[in-house]
Design a protein around this nucleic acid. Structure first.
Lengths: 215, 215
DNA sequence: GCTTTTTCTGACCGTATGGTCAAGAAAAGA
DNA sequence: TCTTTTCTTGACCATACGGTCAGAAAAAGC
């Protein structure tokens, strides 16, 4: 009858279970940290026996590594918009929107990432040194080009990027604090719109972003 | 001969050991998280036997609680400057300086705080709901006054505060990432000055802060 | 000096955790 | 249908951890 009652192929089973486990793991790692997370907790949240987790992921660390790597991919992808934009208003504006949306839809991932970096990146240090460094260089050169073209103030691109990361990720990583300061309620849709607007407004004005001329 | 060879009074011993333990605990909690930290690690870093830790702090949680509470005090104190300032340029500028200085001198504390909040503030939720809420209200009314006096743009004070917290604390919490992007080197004195300058410049311009008239 | 109080610490304990394993169930292949 | 491969899982193990404790050492009080 239902799709779930018909027997699943092995590939489907594997994909489905890996997804269940990774999703559960992300949440548990985000809420408890690597050290505080237990395989049993992850298993319970995934609705599988603990031994089954070790069938798909041999160790807790290997499971954690996959969670972090997946998050890193999202993190990088969010900035494809950046490059093709004609100027900072579009490029940085869209980047802020994208990263705020990640913070909203995917706060657990952001927290795991923050935790990993705070603990000196024990599992993804090599990625930081290669992929992240290259990525950052690329974005910095885009920003420098905008500066050279007079489209924004002469700001050190590094610190601008840090501010963008810090501000947008704060809404995920410190979401609990924000919620508490919001009377214990999660931000409403309207409040998220206001948050995005405030961030974009302050930063774009702060860097003296000049609107691109209409095409 | 030396001060350390003469016998210490009981009060001195207690104060000294509590300090040793709290300092070590802050570092270990920052590097490993609450779950990843072990009493043995903290004991080793403090140079004391583990049983001695339990003499001064009955449980790991009580030790952690004291660490977090001390950090929270620093966190609040950093904003005394805020209130007496004539306008946003002085007030927010000084606040940014103060918080950047905390990130520089006291990164472990900032990380412990971030970790606590990320994990839904299990031990200081009551402080968030009382002290932090009051503190935030107070600062928001200062900002609203500045807006009413035409000293800055009409910005939602909440999101401005979040941006200040996010940006300044980022230099501590994500210090490892920043260090990696700085060629593996910690920020130099000059780079810290540049960082502070960039942050102040972008934010103060971003909120349209008007310099106060000379007295 | 003698007693009391506080501090110190190695040895120990119960529990929780990451991980293993063997045997069975289920799908795939022949 | 029979065999092979993959998946599932309860029971189990070794270890590490938070915490305890009894007795020694050291100050403080008298």
């Amino acid at each position: 009858m239902t799709a779930s009652s018909r027997p699943l192929s092995r590939k489907d089973i594997r994909r489905e279970n890996e997804r269940l486990i990774l999703d559960a793991a992300e949440k548990v790692f985000a809420e408890a940290g690597f050290g505080g997370a237990t395989m049993q907790l992850i298993a319970d949240m995934a609705g599988l026996p603990k031994a089954n987790l070790h069938y798909y992921f041999p160790t807790k660390e290997s499971l954690y590594r996959q969670v972090v790597q997946a998050i890193f991919q999202d993190w990088l992808k969010a900035a494809d918009i950046f490059d093709d934009a004609p100027g900072p208003v579009e490029g940085i504006g869209a980047y802020i929107d994208a990263k705020m949306e990640i913070s909203r839809r995917h706060p657990a991932g952001s927290k795991v990432w923050a935790s990993e970096v705070m603990h000196r990146a024990p599992v993804i240090q090599d990625y930081l040194e290669t992929t992240l460094v290259e990525w950052t260089e690329g974005r910095m050169s885009v920003i420098r080009r905008w500066i050279a073209e007079g489209k924004m103030d002469e700001i050190d691109p590094r610190h601008l990027l840090y501010m963008l990361w810090a501000t947008t990720q704060h809404y995920a990583d410190f979401g609990h604090q924000i919620e508490t300061l919001n009377g214990g309620q999660p931000l409403s849709d309207a409040q998220w719109v206001a948050a995005k607007g405030a961030v974009k407004r302050i930063i774009l004005k702060g860097i003296g972003a000049q609107p691109s001329p209409a095409a």
